[in-house]
Amino acid sequence: MKRLLITGGAGAIGRVMRKRLSGIADVIRLADVVALTPEHDGEECVQCDLADASAVQAMVADCDGILHLGGISVERPFDEILHANIIGMYNLYEAARAHGHPRILFASSNHTVGFYPQTQRLRADEPLRPDGLYGVSKGYGELLARLYFDKFGQETASVRIGSCTREPVDYRMLSSWLSYEDFATLTERVFKVPVLGCPVIWGVSANPASWWDNSNVGWLGWQPKDSAENWRTAIEAQGIPPANHPLVTKQGGLFTELAIMRNERSV
């Protein structure tokens, strides 16, 4: 690629991917609602509020691919999620439609299915069971991606990220963990395959305890290498949660018990 756009470039995953994916394109364009500074000649930075349609149009211009990490990544009041994850997602897809349909990797979330029990292994085509407004917004993003593929041919990989961190840190992550390296190699495959379509992919490393089945995307040629099992002994030494705790009962973990947050204006 000539230019890869990474939205959410100031976030935890964005900061890692700007370095790990530096060789995937001639130029990495980093965007976020906060200001960023290029670290070398192969980077350029854009400050952009995803809810600003004209700013998003300029952000997407001249890009061959988009790694969409931007938006709200935790449970928040509806107004915040509306602007960043719903209006922002629409603006991104309208900009992609106006600028030649650059292929998109959309960072969806396991919280689209958070109310499934951990005893159930899921395919990507199971009905959504979001565990909060954040999960609802990611389900909306997946539907929007599907609409723009069917109507306009816009290719998107909706990757339902589990827990993308440097290493797993709690009992639930023994199943949900996605290493930075495995996410990077998945991103590379998404942008390298000749034909992508609009698949939903579980973003999870090779954890034996995983609840998610990626057999439907074997054609992608992605094989995660890391495993949370390497941390099991240390995590279990901290104590295994009680049998009725959401960390061991629900796939969404603690998100399933969070209250719906009210907008500040209604408090």
Rank of each mutant, 00 (worst) to 15 (best):
P77Q: 06
V60H: 03
S73D: 11
S73F: 08
S108D: 04
Q120T: 15
V74I: 15
C63R: 02
A58Y: 01
H101L: 15
L82F: 15
L69S: 07
R123P: 00
H83G: 12
T119L: 03
F115G: 00
I104D: 00
T119R: 03
H68D: 05
E75P: 00
I72N: 08
D62P: 00
P102T: 08
L69A: 10
L105N: 01
R121F: 05
H111S: 14
A98S: 14
N110P: 01
L82T: 08
A58H: 05
A61G: 03
T112H: 00
I81Q: 05
V60C: 06
E94C: 14
C63G: 05
Y116Q: 02
F78N: 02
L69W: 10
A96M: 09
V74S: 14
L105R: 00
Q120S: 04
M89E: 03
R76S: 13
A95Y: 07
E94D: 12
H101M: 12
E94L: 14
A98C: 11
L105V: 13
I104P: 00
Q120R: 13
G70V: 12
R103D: 01
V60N: 03
S73K: 09
H111P: 05
C63S: 10
G65T: 11
M59R: 04
S73Q: 12
Q118S: 06
L92T: 13
L69K: 02
G71H: 06
D64L: 08
E94R: 15
G71S: 09
Q120H: 11
R97L: 15
N85W: 07
H111Q: 15
A96K: 09
G88L: 03
N91C: 08
Q118M: 13
E80H: 09
A96N: 08
A84N: 12
P102Y: 07
G71N: 06
Q118D: 01
P102Q: 02
F106P: 01
E94M: 14
E75W: 01
D62M: 01
I86F: 10
C63P: 06
M59V: 11
L105F: 09
G65K: 04
L82Y: 15
P77I: 11
Y90P: 00
S73C: 13
Y90E: 12
A95M: 07
A95Q: 09
L69T: 10
H99M: 10
L92V: 14
G71D: 07
E94K: 14
L105M: 13
H111I: 09
H99F: 14
D79H: 12
H101Y: 10
V113P: 00
Y116A: 02
L122V: 01
G70T: 13
G65E: 05
Y116W: 07
I86K: 01
L82Q: 15
R121D: 00
T112R: 00
L92P: 03
H101K: 15
R121T: 15
H99E: 10
I104T: 09
N91G: 06
G114P: 02
A107D: 04
S108N: 02
V74E: 15
G70I: 12
G71F: 09
H101R: 14
E75G: 06
V74H: 14
P117R: 08
H83I: 12
G71V: 10
V113N: 10
S73Y: 11
A58L: 11
G100I: 13
A84R: 04
M59W: 10
H111M: 11
I86W: 10
